[in-house]
Lab assay of single mutants.
Amino acid sequence: HNGKLCKLKGIAPLQLGKCNITGWLLGNPECDSLLPARSWSYIVETPNSENGACYPGDLIDYEELREQLSSVSSLERFEIFPKESSWPNHTFNGVTVSCSHRGKSSFYRNLLWLTKKGDSYPKLTNSYVNNKGKEVLVLWGVHHPSSSDEQQSLYSNGNAYVSVASSNYNRRFTPEIAARPKVRDQHGRMNYYWTLLEPGDTIIFEATGNLIAPWYAFALSRGFESGIITSNASMHECNTKCQTPQGAINSNLPFQNIHPVTIGECPKYVRSTKLRMVTGLRNIPSIQYRGLFGAIAGFIEGGWTGMIDGWYGYHHQNEQGSGYAADQKSTQNAINGITNKVNSVIEKMNTQFTAVGKEFNNLEKRMENLNKKVDDGFLDIWTYNAELLVLLENERTLDFHDLNVKNLYEKVKSQLKNNAKEIGNGCFEFYHKCDNECMESVRNGTYDYPKYSEESKLNREKIDGVKLESMGVYQILAIYSTVASSLVLLVSLGAISFWMCSNGSLQCRICI
């Protein structure tokens, strides 16, 4: 991952900044910058967002509201009850120091605090018919004063009620008058409520006091790749198909172990950190130390980045220098085999997901714990399936590479015959000098055995068991695999060879 928040398929997220979902939807004055928000790819909250409900109280069923919003990608904020005409018999300019803005008392931008007009609070009834052709999110509140005197001074009615009804919602609220500790300079409380109004449905408000009335509502448009994440990451000019709280993932790998919460087309989250597919040879310690064997393909974004291909070729060293050249036929066979294998694994496992966190309130801790156990169970199954699949494929890959290298080895052996000696570690020792032209003939299969047989015969008789390297004779190393990324691999195959001279070296080696 890149540690950044990015656009998702070209669409920017909605960053709530210092506000949370509650503050944004109710219209906390400190969240005025969010009022123009219309569309987004996903919503970003920060872990310690401080601006929620400015007048103390709870947004009821907040967790369910977050779940609903996680599939919303755009909205239209509109005046559901026009301020100047909807409440002619009531005062609608209630403000509070708890919702101060720029040093002055204020109130929510989407709600109206209705109080008595003169000395009376006549029963009010108002309704709205949803003609938007889509779901409408309606929010309101109920004020709970701290004393009967406060109730009387604001609403005149000691036994007030609030009723809200639609086809799918029907509740009646009565204020709970009680002494409470002071929070944000208030002994009173406000509880906030919401409902989704279906197209064509009607919502009716009736009250004799204590109503925090809707002013603006939201017509919602769903987008199934949307979601809500909690993150401290910063926004950058970048684009992605998959976003996590820790950063964007741009990967076609089937798995990731970065974060379980994802938005967009994302690899499946697994616990494993070692889900690797081999593309090189079986481990040979001396070669492995030099980083030549054991190439791997990573299938977990965050564990290993991208696929690494092994390729086969020849390396030689003689009086004229040293050089490398790919054996294109065996390399292409290996590439085709690995590509098919990788595609097979991805096809089997690479279903892209959006995974969002589930919200539970403080009273639902047991449910949250149960949900976590269920999620953990599914996660263990996914991890096991992934590891088992790759384990089985790896064994076949190792066998496949062994065969490829063996074929190259036999190709060289059949040409050199007794003009060189096998020394048991995949290397041959020449009994004759071999210049670049000679080396090329070994690589392309045109090695002239009779041409060098007499010199080889004489050297075999002279050496008589002495280690060949100390006599200045020449080696050919018969097994060799270097490691390159897919891009470098293609470039390498396009070149005939490249040279690395070893000044004054008397050794001649050709490596497979």
Results as ranks from 00 to 15, higher is better:
232 N>M: 04
232 N>Y: 10
234 S>M: 04
234 S>N: 07
234 S>H: 04
236 H>K: 08
236 H>G: 13
236 H>L: 10
237 E>H: 06
238 C>H: 07
240 T>F: 02
240 T>K: 03
240 T>Q: 00
241 K>N: 14
242 C>P: 06
242 C>S: 04
245 P>L: 02
245 P>E: 10
245 P>G: 09
246 Q>W: 11
246 Q>V: 14
246 Q>K: 01
247 G>A: 05
247 G>M: 09
248 A>H: 03
248 A>Q: 14
249 I>L: 14
250 N>M: 01
250 N>D: 13
254 P>L: 10
254 P>F: 04
254 P>C: 07
254 P>K: 06
254 P>R: 02
255 F>W: 11
256 Q>F: 04
257 N>L: 06
258 I>W: 00
258 I>V: 15
259 H>D: 14
260 P>A: 15
261 V>I: 12
263 I>W: 02
263 I>T: 01
266 C>W: 11
268 K>R: 15
268 K>A: 10
270 V>E: 00
271 R>M: 03
272 S>E: 00
272 S>I: 09
273 T>C: 03
273 T>D: 03
273 T>Q: 12
274 K>P: 00
275 L>S: 08
275 L>G: 04
276 R>W: 11
276 R>C: 11
277 M>P: 01
277 M>W: 02
278 V>W: 07
278 V>Y: 03
278 V>C: 14
279 T>M: 07
279 T>K: 07
280 G>R: 14
281 L>H: 02
281 L>N: 05
281 L>M: 12
282 R>H: 08
282 R>L: 07
283 N>V: 02
284 I>A: 13
286 S>P: 14
286 S>C: 04
286 S>G: 13
286 S>Q: 15
287 I>L: 13
289 Y>V: 10
290 R>S: 00
290 R>T: 07
291 G>C: 08
293 F>M: 13
293 F>S: 04
293 F>R: 05
293 F>D: 01
294 G>S: 13
295 A>G: 08
295 A>S: 06
296 I>D: 06
296 I>K: 03
296 I>Y: 02
297 A>S: 15
297 A>V: 06
299 F>L: 10
300 I>K: 01
300 I>W: 02
300 I>N: 01
300 I>M: 13
301 E>T: 08
302 G>C: 07
303 G>A: 07
303 G>M: 09
303 G>V: 02
303 G>W: 02
303 G>F: 01
304 W>C: 07
304 W>V: 03
304 W>R: 10
305 T>F: 08
306 G>I: 08
306 G>R: 10
307 M>W: 05
307 M>D: 03
307 M>S: 00
309 D>I: 05
309 D>K: 08
310 G>D: 06
310 G>T: 05
314 Y>G: 03
315 H>E: 06
315 H>M: 14
315 H>K: 06
315 H>L: 14
316 H>R: 03
318 N>V: 12
318 N>L: 05
319 E>H: 04
319 E>R: 01
322 S>F: 10
324 Y>F: 15
324 Y>S: 01
325 A>S: 14
325 A>W: 03
325 A>P: 04
326 A>R: 06
327 D>L: 03
329 K>W: 03
330 S>T: 15
332 Q>K: 05
332 Q>D: 10
332 Q>M: 07
333 N>Q: 07
335 I>R: 00
335 I>Y: 11
338 I>K: 10
338 I>D: 09
339 T>D: 07
339 T>L: 07
340 N>K: 08
341 K>Q: 05
341 K>L: 07
342 V>K: 00
343 N>Q: 10
344 S>L: 05
345 V>M: 09
346 I>W: 02
346 I>L: 13
346 I>C: 05
347 E>A: 15
348 K>W: 07
348 K>C: 06
350 N>R: 14
351 T>L: 13
351 T>Y: 08
352 Q>D: 08
353 F>L: 11
355 A>S: 11
355 A>H: 00
355 A>L: 06
356 V>E: 04
357 G>H: 02
358 K>W: 12
360 F>S: 07
360 F>R: 04
361 N>K: 09
361 N>L: 00
361 N>M: 06
361 N>P: 07
361 N>H: 12
362 N>C: 08
363 L>H: 06
365 K>V: 02
366 R>C: 07
367 M>H: 06
368 E>P: 02
368 E>N: 08
369 N>F: 08
370 L>Q: 07
370 L>V: 12
370 L>H: 06
373 K>P: 02
373 K>G: 03
374 V>Q: 05
374 V>E: 05
375 D>R: 05
379 L>G: 06
379 L>E: 06
379 L>Q: 14
379 L>R: 09
381 I>Q: 07
383 T>F: 08
383 T>G: 10
384 Y>A: 11
386 A>W: 08
386 A>E: 13
388 L>G: 01
388 L>N: 06
389 L>C: 03
389 L>G: 06
390 V>G: 01
391 L>T: 12
391 L>G: 06
391 L>C: 06
392 L>P: 08
393 E>R: 07
394 N>E: 07
395 E>W: 07
396 R>G: 08
396 R>Q: 10
397 T>G: 04
398 L>N: 14
399 D>Y: 07
399 D>W: 08
400 F>C: 08
402 D>K: 10
402 D>G: 08
403 L>S: 06
404 N>S: 06
406 K>T: 06
406 K>C: 06
407 N>P: 01
408 L>F: 11
409 Y>E: 07
410 E>Q: 14
410 E>H: 03
411 K>C: 04
411 K>P: 07
411 K>N: 11
412 V>E: 08
413 K>I: 03
414 S>F: 00
415 Q>W: 01
416 L>R: 03
416 L>T: 09
417 K>D: 12
419 N>D: 08
420 A>M: 07
421 K>Y: 11
421 K>A: 14
422 E>Q: 10
424 G>P: 10
424 G>F: 10
425 N>S: 08
425 N>P: 03
425 N>A: 07
426 G>H: 08
427 C>V: 12
427 C>W: 11
430 F>V: 12
431 Y>Q: 04
431 Y>S: 00
431 Y>L: 15
433 K>H: 09
434 C>T: 14
435 D>V: 03
437 E>W: 13
438 C>Y: 09
441 S>L: 08
441 S>R: 14
441 S>T: 15
443 R>H: 03
446 T>C: 11
446 T>R: 06
447 Y>P: 12
448 D>T: 05
450 P>G: 09
451 K>M: 11
452 Y>V: 00
452 Y>S: 05
453 S>R: 09
453 S>T: 09
454 E>I: 13
454 E>C: 13
454 E>L: 15
455 E>Q: 12
456 S>E: 00
458 L>Y: 08
459 N>T: 10
460 R>Y: 12
462 K>F: 01
463 I>A: 01
463 I>E: 08
464 D>E: 07
464 D>R: 14
464 D>P: 02
466 V>H: 03
467 K>I: 05
467 K>P: 10
468 L>N: 04
469 E>C: 03
469 E>M: 00
470 S>I: 15
471 M>F: 07
472 G>N: 02
472 G>L: 02
473 V>A: 12
473 V>C: 07
474 Y>C: 08
474 Y>W: 08
478 A>C: 14
479 I>C: 08
480 Y>F: 06
480 Y>Q: 08
481 S>K: 10
482 T>R: 01
482 T>D: 05
483 V>T: 13
483 V>G: 02
484 A>C: 14
486 S>F: 05
486 S>D: 03
486 S>I: 05
487 L>H: 00
487 L>V: 15
488 V>C: 12
488 V>N: 07
489 L>T: 14
489 L>A: 13
489 L>E: 09
491 V>D: 03
491 V>K: 00
491 V>T: 15
492 S>F: 09
493 L>H: 00
493 L>Q: 06
494 G>W: 00
494 G>R: 00
495 A>S: 09
495 A>Q: 11
495 A>H: 04
496 I>T: 06
496 I>G: 05
497 S>V: 07
498 F>C: 02
499 W>F: 15
500 M>W: 08
502 S>F: 08
504 G>A: 13
506 L>M: 10
506 L>W: 09
507 Q>E: 08
508 C>W: 10
508 C>G: 02
510 I>K: 02
511 C>L: 01
